Amino acid sequence: MIVKVLGTGCKKCQKTEENARAAIKELGIDATIEKVEDVQGIMSYGVMATPALVVDEQVKVKGKVPTVEEIKKML
Rank of each mutant, 00 (worst) to 15 (best):
A52Y: 06
E37N: 13
M48V: 11
V68G: 06
E70L: 09
K62D: 05
E57H: 14
I2M: 08
E26Y: 06
E26T: 11
R21Y: 08
G41R: 07
A52E: 03
L6K: 03
M48R: 14
M1F: 05
A52I: 07
M1D: 01
V5D: 00
L75P: 08
G9Y: 03
M1L: 07
M43L: 14
E34F: 03
L27H: 09
K25R: 14
D30R: 13
T32H: 11
T16N: 00
K62A: 14
P66G: 10
L27N: 08
K72T: 03
A52C: 07
A31W: 04
T32V: 14
A20K: 06
V39S: 10
E34V: 13
L6Y: 01
K4N: 00
V47L: 05
V39P: 06
E34Y: 05
I29L: 13
T32I: 11
E69C: 09
A23Y: 07
K73V: 12
G46K: 04
E34Q: 15
G9P: 09
T16E: 01
E26H: 08
V65A: 09
K15T: 15
V36P: 08
K72C: 05
T32P: 01
Q40G: 09
I29C: 12
V59T: 03
K64Y: 13
V65W: 03
K15W: 04
A23Q: 04
V36N: 03
Q14N: 12
K11S: 14
G46W: 04
V5Q: 00
V59I: 02
A49M: 14
V36C: 07
N19W: 05
T32M: 10
Q40D: 14
D56F: 10
E37Q: 11
E34M: 10
T67W: 05
L6H: 02
C13F: 02
Q58M: 11
E69F: 08
V68C: 06
I42F: 02
C10E: 00
L27A: 14
A22L: 14
V36E: 02
T16K: 01
V55F: 07
V36S: 05
K25C: 04
I2A: 03
V5W: 00
T16M: 05
N19H: 15
G28Y: 10
D56A: 15
A49Y: 13
A20L: 10
V61E: 01
A20E: 04
I71V: 09
G9H: 00
E57D: 15
D56E: 15
Q14L: 13
D56P: 13
L27T: 12
A20T: 13
K4A: 00
L6D: 00
E57N: 15
I33V: 14
I24H: 04
E70F: 08
K64Q: 13
E18R: 15
V65T: 13
E37Y: 07
K12Y: 09
K12D: 12
V47R: 05
I33F: 05
K62R: 13
D30Q: 15
L6V: 04
C13H: 06
V36G: 04
V59G: 02
M1E: 03
T16W: 00
V5H: 01
K12N: 13
P66Q: 10
Q40R: 14
T67G: 13
D56L: 10
